[in-house]
Amino acid sequence: MKLYDYILSPSCYKVRLMAALTGVTLDIRPVDFHPGAEHKGAELLALNPAGSIPIFVDGDLILTESSAILVYLAAKAAPEWLAVASAEEAARVQQWLSFSGRLTASLGGARLTEMLLRPGDIGALQAQGVLALRELEAGLVEQSLRGMRFLAANRLTVADIACFPYVALAPDGGVSLDPYPAIRLWSRALRGLDHFIEMPGIHRLHELKPEPHIEAGEA
């Protein structure tokens, strides 16, 4: 299973994170997205004419939508992450998978504009990002009232992984997460998982490890 990957891409990080959490080993092929724009070059366009990453290849199968890749990894390695036991949960998973595309367009767009100098209407992108965050916050509040800790169920599903990266990296695009306590709690729960991996912009939760006892001169 080969992943055409960029270390700063939240969409690629979804796949790396899902693989890490479910114990899947990926064959990582780094893509020089910035500054090289390798994803717009002949080799990668042949795999994905849309010119985006991630690109995921497993034998004959080529996937270029991160949600589809998450579903594939889950179906192969951790079917319980699909939450298809009830109609409601299955539908909620789909609801948030589709919604995640809006996060990419809004918060992801703001991040590319603010950070990597992509042309874009930063005010509009940030405003759309705020609307999306409010929707997610309300969704998480309602889930918690239903006794559910995660977006689609009382367990992690692919929906959480699809939404987490662009949300956690919203500040990279100049959108603060301070107004969203439910999102921050949810984000913390994810960051505290066994086998969780970070990407640049998401810091280690140092509180998960006890304070080390060190003597001067020992370093």
Partner: peptide, 30 residues
């Protein structure tokens, strides 16, 4: 981050007690 009753800064890890006093500067453990 919060460890026990101390609040630490993400940048250099200086930690502070509830009274606001600095407890530890990791760059200078002694």
């Amino acid at each position: 981050f919060v460890r026990g009753e101390a609040l630490s800064c993400i940048y250099h890890g200086w930690s502070y007690a509830q009274a606001g006093n600095c407890l530890r500067i990791p760059a200078h453990p002694g």
